[in-house]
Design a protein around this nucleic acid. Structure first.
Lengths: 226, 226
DNA sequence: CCATAACGGAACTGTACGGTCTAGTTTGAT
DNA sequence: ATCAAACTAGACCGTACAGTTCCGTTATGG
């Protein structure tokens, strides 16, 4: 037994700013709880999750759970909020704008494909289902998910389309309307299918590509420069 | 006190085939239970609804509830199924096809506006939220909602677009793809906003009209005959 | 190396809830 | 008028579950 590097012997010094493996006990428990909470809340919903099992799954005493999070509600809110934030960040990425009009179709296809690929993740879809099912109980969480999800995507797209219009790559009068249309042209069917039909309805890479080609084709028929 | 016509004195003869006011006691209770169940399940979700309160709200004994429906699960399934069926039927309606190409835009706008108006009903939206939140527990219900909702709408649209193509009113290679795109171009944003933002996000008639005009414009740019 | 804060485990409280049971009452068709 | 079916009220059972308490144990950082 030589390599115990991973989870033991934390020494005294923390690596500086590195958020590496060396974490205090408390921090580790905190994360273990959140991790178990993610699995359980996503699988069972808010009311369907019980704190005894959650503590057991976290390999932590119930006492510790309550020391860290205060209540079931607070734990739920913190979990969903952190997942929402993380998901929102994962979507955003910088791509160089195209320079020629004939690069626009493939650019939009790549962009949409990426977007779709990220959104159609089992965990994210389940988060969306969970939050939708709890809109009445936790409206703030649903609103946050809307802001970090669709709204952010549309805002980003709108800015992009406005630039493309100025570059003469597209003809877009109302960038927000165009962005909204593009967004749901791409995501409407896959997302809504998956909401109701479960993860079995998640498109394969090939299906995604076909979906995206169709969407971009329609979009460009309305907003293409030529 | 003269007019007690409404809910009393059921006499012996039932009006014939008329499903009027004169119903057996059992039937009345059955409906009262379903009605209360609708309110309570939509408001509280499956786990959040309790059978004592449900019986009280139905003005019926708990025993009667169990005589009629057997279990909480069975009641839930029957309720959601009946609501799903009813909703699906409400959407379908026959409109005369347009004959000239220049009638197509306003025809599509009217069609979409109607569709959107029906779907954006608080009760229906809440049913959708409820079912989405329970996909794991009741996948059959979610599947049924998908079939009676989006799938049926798209199938109907596809048949319509195929006729329009043959009439030379549109140019549609893949009617199902076109129908899907049209459907989510129209409904994507409103439905998904409402899922997360609640009934406050239900568009007004004017917003609906604007939404629909944009959607039809984009759609016709890609599929218009000219 | 030791003081202290964090943790474990398990019992405990109070309540809530799905479903059943009992025993008496109402209803409606004949 | 009669009688069976349907209904009522509420007690009751078993279980589940959020949150607390108690006290002994362990890890951590100075």
């Amino acid at each position: 037994m030589v390599a115990d590097v991973d989870a033991a012997t934390p020494h005294t010094a923390t690596g500086g700013g590195a958020p590496a493996e060396t974490l205090g006990r408390s921090e580790r428990k905190h994360r273990a709880i959140l991790e178990a909470a993610q699995g359980m809340f996503l699988a069972g919903g808010y009311l369907g999750t019980n704190m005894d099992e959650l503590a057991a799954a976290s390999r932590v005493s119930k006492q510790t759970v309550y020391k860290h999070f205060g209540s079931k509600e607070a734990l739920f809110v913190e979990l969903v909020t952190s997942m929402t934030d993380a998901a929102g960040d994962r979507v955003h990425v910088d791509l160089a704008d195209p320079t020629e009009a004939d690069e626009v179709p493939s650019f939009l296809e790549a962009y949409a494909d990426r977007q779709l690929d990220i959104v159609m993740t089992p965990t994210l879809l389940q988060l969306r289902r969970l939050v939708i099912g709890e809109v009445t109980r936790f409206p703030e969480l649903a609103e946050a998910l809307y802001e970090h999800g669709p709204k952010r995507a549309i805002t980003t797209l709108a800015a992009m389309f406005e630039r493309f219009d100025e570059l003469g790559l597209l003809r877009v009068d109302d960038p927000t309307a165009a962005a909204t249309e593009f967004n749901w042209l791409v995501m409407g069917e896959p997302v809504n299918r998956a909401m109701l039909l479960g993860d079995a309805a998640i498109p394969t890479a090939a299906e995604r590509a076909a979906q995206v080609r169709g969407a971009v084709r329609v979009f460009l028929a309305a907003y293409g420069a030529r």
